[in-house]
Each structure stands twice: as C-alpha cells, then as structure tokens.
Design a protein around this nucleic acid. Structure first.
Lengths: 188, 188
DNA sequence: TATTAAATAGACATAGTTGTCTATTTAATT
DNA sequence: AATTAAATAGACAACTATGTCTATTTAATA
C-alpha cells in the first residue's frame, strides 16, 4: 500500500495541527501558522478541510483512534487481569511525563471549543465513553474483591485517571497519578 | 463602608469577565465584548488592568477568594467530621448543575492560558493547592477507618472532585460526581 | 460653587484572524 | 510524451484582536 499524494498533505496538516493544538491551544493557533509549519499551501488545507473547525474535528477523530490503539496494545501485553487495570495508570503517567505534563488533549479541546461546536463535543464524548467502556470490561474480568461494585470501581478508575492527569498538568508533576495507582491497587 | 466610584467599575469589569471567560472561554472573549457588556469605556478597563492577561489574573484571584469562602462556609455548616468531606461533593455537584455543567473555571483557564503566562499558572496552582490542603485537614480530623492513609484519602478525594467535574462537563450530567460521593462514603 | 479626578465615546494604529481566488508549477496517469 | 489532477505561492477581502490617544462629560471633594 503506497501513500497517495493527497494523503501525505493530509498527514502533514494533521501532524502539525496535533502538535500546535496541544502545545499552544486551539484558538491561539492560527491557520497561517499551521500551513507554514506543515509546509503546505493554504489552498491545500482548505481543499481537505472545509474550515478550522473541521480540522479540529478531524484531529480529534485521528487522535481517538491512535491513542486508543496504543492504550489497548499496552494493556494487552499484560495477562494478569488486575495488573491490566494498573497498566492504565502507567500508560497515562508515562504519556504525561513524556509530553511535559500537557494534560489531556480531549479535555483541553472540550474546555476550548466544546461549547462552540456540537461535532467537537460529540467526538470528545465518544473518546471518553470508549475509555470508560474499556475500563468497565477490564473491571468485570478483574476478579476484584468487590469492596466496591463493578460500576463504582469503573467510575473510580475513570475519574482518577482524568483527575490525576489534571493534577499533573496543573502542578507539573505526576505524584498524584502515581498515588492513584497505589490506591486502586489497594482496592482491587 | 460606601463603594468608591472606581470600585464599581472594577466590579462591573470583573463580573462581566467572569461570566464571559467561563461561558465562552478566555481567548474567544474579546476586550471589546467585555467593555460593551460591562457598559464601561475601554480606557477605564485599561486604567484598572494593564492588559487582557492582567484581567485574567485578577479574575482568577477574585474567583479563588469567592469560591473558597463559599466552600468553607458550606462545610462549616456541618458538624460531623465525616459528613464534612461529603459536603465537598454536594457543593461541587450543586455548582455544576446550576451552571449547566460548565466544568471548573481554574482547569479551563489552565487549559487555555496556563502555558502562556506564569502568573496565570501560579494563581491556578494556588487555588488548587488551597483546596487540597483544606481536604487534608478535614481528612485528618475525620476519624476515617484508615483503609487508606490520610495522604491517600486526601489525594483520592481531590482527584475524584476534579475527575467528577470533568466528567460532568463532558457528558453534561452529574452521575459520576454523585457516584464519587457514594464511593468516598464507603471508604470513610 | 470651584476644583480635581475619573469615566466616557470613539477614532485610530497595528497586527492578526479565517477564508477565497488566481496563476503557476509539480507530479502522476494514460 | 500528452493529459489530467493536485499542490503551490501569494495577493486579497472582510473582519476582529489588543492597546493607545484625545476631547468631552460626569461626579466627588474642598
């Protein structure tokens, strides 16, 4: 499967948008900066994406797919059903450290543009719901001690992940996320 | 204590900025919209606040004070030390419902402008640290069952609050925040 | 009431925004 | 090699952004 000419341009745009939307923010990033750093022409961008909002939606869709595949792959490496749940924390912790505590791209997008466009909100909801469903399956198969119900444990892990990522992005350190893992370990 | 002339203007500016920065977002809100809806002159704004960033910092400072005072007052109404911790969830849940699941103003500001100005980040860190210290004190005095250490329970509550608020602002409902309260209740 | 300070309206400068359009060059396909 | 499609540079329109400045009016104080 060789890469079409158009796909190269699309990838360059999305790579650049992903980097800039994340490190700078969506509104602060101008189309002119995207085309300059992606090294493509403005007309090319507007040929593939009808508007800046369309680009944001496409960015979120691709992010959802890439991010979730990596997460699933990481979890699948582990066989112990309880350890699978703990990997969720390792995965997110490692990501936060690597990207300089930039927080969650979906939450960022929601805070910047979730109110303004329903497609944006829908993509963010889809991604987060996907994660929650994934956690729920892992919880059911974990054989945990049932100190909490399956639903409670699922919600707990889901909220601790986001809460821990938020704490990391505010305090620029991963102590809370590390601590979250230890807490879940006790409750499994 | 009568209100000075200048203070009326400052209050009108901060009230409007608070409303717009929260409902629309910081970058999307222009100075021209602020002065128009606050019904004051542009020169007045720039007399009291040197720049838009200064206005954001001032907004966060005032928010920190007002929000925390209300939270503390709510908690102080309750005498039972364990129930005091649960009030934290009631308080935030009620706020989220009332403001249409708009999320946390500090997290929003961090996601929009935390990277761009160190004073902004500092104010956000101050507010969140203040809350964490407050929770820590309540935990120490709660007489909880010590299934988790004081530090762990503090971190858990802190992360569940932010995680629950995030979930509310994404899914536009308070189920997770409600569930968070039930979970903490079990662990107290 | 006269003085002083503050708030006002609104023009203005400068720069940036998204998005469109044209003319040209590049590359793939027949 | 000729044709077709895509990407290019860059000018341009229309609008918005922040921030400054002047001239005027309003209000508090002495």
């Amino acid at each position: 499967m060789i890469k079409q000419r158009g796909q190269v341009v699309i990838d360059k745009i999305l790579d650049t948008a992903e980097r800039l939307f994340f490190t700078q923010g969506y509104h602060i990033t101008g189309i002119n900066q995207v085309i300059e750093e992606a090294d493509i022409a403005k007309a090319s961008l507007y040929k593939h994406f009808g508007s800046k909002t369309d680009l944001l939606v496409a960015y979120l869709q691709r992010l959802h797919e890439c991010w979730f595949n990596k997460l699933e792959a990481d979890v699948n490496k582990e066989v112990d059903p309880k350890a699978k749940l703990l990997i969720l924390f390792d995965h997110h912790l490692e990501r936060q450290v690597r990207n300089g505590y930039g927080g969650c791209r979906f939450i960022k997008a929601n805070d910047e543009a979730g109110m303004s466009d329903e497609r944006v909100l829908a993509e963010i909801q889809k991604a987060k719901q996907h994660l929650k469903d994934f956690i729920a399956r892992l919880v059911v198969n974990s054989g945990h001690q049932k100190l909490l119900t399956d639903k409670e444990l699922t919600g707990l892990i889901f909220m601790m992940l986001d809460g821990g990522i938020i704490a990391a992005s505010i305090f620029k350190q991963a102590d809370d996320l590390q601590s979250a893992k230890a807490i879940i370990q006790k409750l499994l």
